[in-house]
Design a protein around this nucleic acid. Structure first.
Lengths: 204, 204
DNA sequence: AATTAAAGTGAACTATCATTCTAATTTCCG
DNA sequence: CGGAAATTAGAATGATAGTTCACTTTAATT
């Protein structure tokens, strides 16, 4: 079917464009990345970009949306498969580290989006992404709450603990990327984070 | 002495300008803040800004530099006064939370600077700030290392633990600001963070 | 071949600032 | 008081970069 092939080619082009844009946005941020840069990197003419997307912002948000969605569904799939609170925490950490090990470029964009800095007065679309990220934090909080009610965890406020864990992970990823992912994979740090979060640093 | 009064007034003006700029940069980010905005907010003419600072970037970096320096010296003073690793950790958390409780606006700028996003291809000056932040992380790592060598802490890689702790704190501050600093002060969260970092979430 | 519609192009158009300049006004200080 | 220096409002300037559009190319179909 001809329509099908066209559609496929369209999707491929779209993906190529987004990948090029991702690299640039990650490297230079939203504002210092120009449409001309993107066009050159993706080997399209500027006009072609506007045939695929309404605006620079739409490119950015589509990109963020797709990646965030992919990320969240991975994490949610893995945590829901794990049985027991500790295992769910482990699955969360493992999946997050694994995802960003393979999406290093995207990490900076993710952090910027988290801190809400990049597109400050958010569009309705940007808002949806933001809400998704917040909802995901609630999900982590629920895992912790469950663990508290089964007696696995002590009674630390779940939201606070969820934010703390999230911060620990982000910081670790950041550190790893900063050091040019030195020896060992990021994934391998799952154990350290898990241990730190579960039992702390103090000698018992 | 007249020179002295002039100098004093000059400093006051400078501070007023930086405070106005801080609020705007925190709210809209570096790029979406215009010189006209700053001039209006600070109640100066645009030309006057250029008499005090060479450029918009210089305003931003001066601001960041002063605040970061003030922040770091507070933390370093407090941690060096505390005796024992656990007390130092406590002092670190307390001082950081206290600082950002009183510098809410600045937090967003601090985070942006940390993530290295705002002024991506850093100037030499921006680089110095960045190095200071990194050096401070080393100092935290040293505290942890010391605690390990005295047997207070178990042997978790100090750098990793330092980054994790830093991430926990940032995340907590972020959460607090996000929720419009609801009930209770941010400072009051010192205990939670300390407990989480030292002994983890698991019931022992 | 001819036709057609979609895809692609990039120069031109615009808007937006950072920065500089001007002219009028105010503030200092001898 | 008087004039020098600082300040102001805001109009030019210049550069950058998002967006548009009239036109060209491509490729499938007739």
């Amino acid at each position: 079917m001809k329509v099908s092939r066209k559609t496929r080619e369209g999707l491929t082009r779209r993906r190529e464009l987004l990948t090029a844009a991702e690299a640039l946005f990650a490297k230079n941020g939203f504002f210092k990345t120009t449409m001309a840069d993107i066009a050159e990197e993706a080997e399209f003419a500027i006009g072609t970009l506007y045939q695929m997307f309404r605006s620079k912002e739409e490119i950015y948000l589509s990109l963020v949306n797709e990646k965030v969605t992919a990320y969240l569904s991975k994490v949610e799939a893995e945590t829901s498969m794990a049985i027991g609170s500790e295992a769910k925490i482990e699955a969360l950490i493992r999946t997050k580290l694994n995802f960003f090990e393979h999406n290093r470029n995207f990490f900076r964009i993710y952090v910027a989006e988290w801190s809400g800095f990049e597109l400050a007065p958010k569009s309705a679309f940007g808002d949806r992404i933001w809400k998704k990220l917040l909802a995901h934090l609630d999900l982590i909080a629920e895992i912790i709450e469950k663990g508290t009610s089964t007696g696995e965890f002590k009674g630390i406020a779940p939201k606070e603990a969820a934010f703390a864990l999230n911060g620990m992970m982000n910081s670790t990823i950041f550190h790893w990327i900063l050091g040019n992912h030195p020896r060992g994979s990021l994934l391998a740090k799952t154990e350290v984070i898990k241990e730190l979060f579960l039992t702390g640093i103090e000698k018992s």
